[in-house]
């Protein structure tokens, strides 16, 4: 488990090989949501995952992020092979290794912007002061320093999305998964958010998958991967 970092330098953020996800429906029929997906991300690579609705984008991200277990295949994030992880191990993995920006609900309504970042520190072993410093620094970078005390209901859509990005970066993840981060924003705001995501990822050297069905924002990423009916096409 604990390979010394000096011995094997991790050069990939994500390795998925032949990952399948099959849902068995109530009537016994199978829905193949992801079919033999193989995908590798360099440790600071930003990939756009593009495909129509229902093509398996969210499923892929959920499996890569340890929210969903694959039916078969191998998934390695950073130096951790999560293919055989139990639910408990996956919880710990999500806590430590990945950042999420979900399609819909991203913030806890009764926590202010700063607390929505700090809550990440409360999930595992508390670090206290370093977490506070990190939260303040992230809010600063995201242009939210003066909004730190605002509740989500007091923020605009773009500001909320920026808080969510900050939250996703709080645990210094190896991989950040953005599921349609701009779909709820207008074009201009969407571009600003993509700009911000790119800056944050590149300045940290963090890998990311950005899910979208909007071809116009793919140029913020290093490359695009297309998915149709659960199958990846480069």
């Amino acid at each position: 488990m604990n390979s010394a970092p000096s011995a094997t330098t991790v050069t990939t953020a994500l390795e998925m090989s032949n990952v399948r996800k099959v849902y068995t429906m109530g009537d016994g029929s199978d829905v193949v949501a992801l079919d033999h997906a193989t995908l590798t991300l360099g440790s600071d690579e930003m990939v756009a995952l593009v495909g129509p609705s229902g093509s398996g984008k969210t499923t892929l991200c959920s499996i890569a992020g340890g929210i969903l277990s694959a039916t078969e295949g191998r998934i390695v994030v950073g130096d951790e092979d999560i293919s055989g992880h139990s639910a408990k191990e996956l919880t710990k993995f999500r806590q430590d290794k990945v950042g999420f920006v979900f399609q819909s609900v991203n913030l806890v309504p009764f926590l202010n912007a700063r607390e929505n970042l700090l809550v990440v520190d409360e999930l595992g072993r508390r670090t206290g002061a370093p977490a506070k410093a990190r939260a303040d620094q992230l809010l600063e970078e995201l242009g939210l320093a003066d909004r730190a005390k605002n509740l989500p209901s007091q923020l605009s859509g773009g500001q909320r999305q920026r808080v969510a990005i900050g939250r996703a970066l709080m645990n210094d993840p190896a991989l950040v998964l953005f599921d349609e981060p701009t779909s709820a924003l207008d074009t201009k705001l969407g571009e600003q958010v993509m700009e911000l995501i790119r800056n944050e990822m590149k300045s940290r050297g963090t890998a990311a998958i950005v899910v979208t069905h909007d071809e116009r924002i793919t140029h913020y990423c290093d490359r695009s991967v297309h998915i149709i009916d659960g199958r990846l096409e480069a």
Binding site: F102, V108, F110, V120, L123
Partner: peptide
Amino acid sequence: QKANSLTLLRAIGAPAGR
């Protein structure tokens, strides 16, 4: 009423026991 928040917290790595 706060099911959304609890689901979000579980998704980002909150142990259920917590």
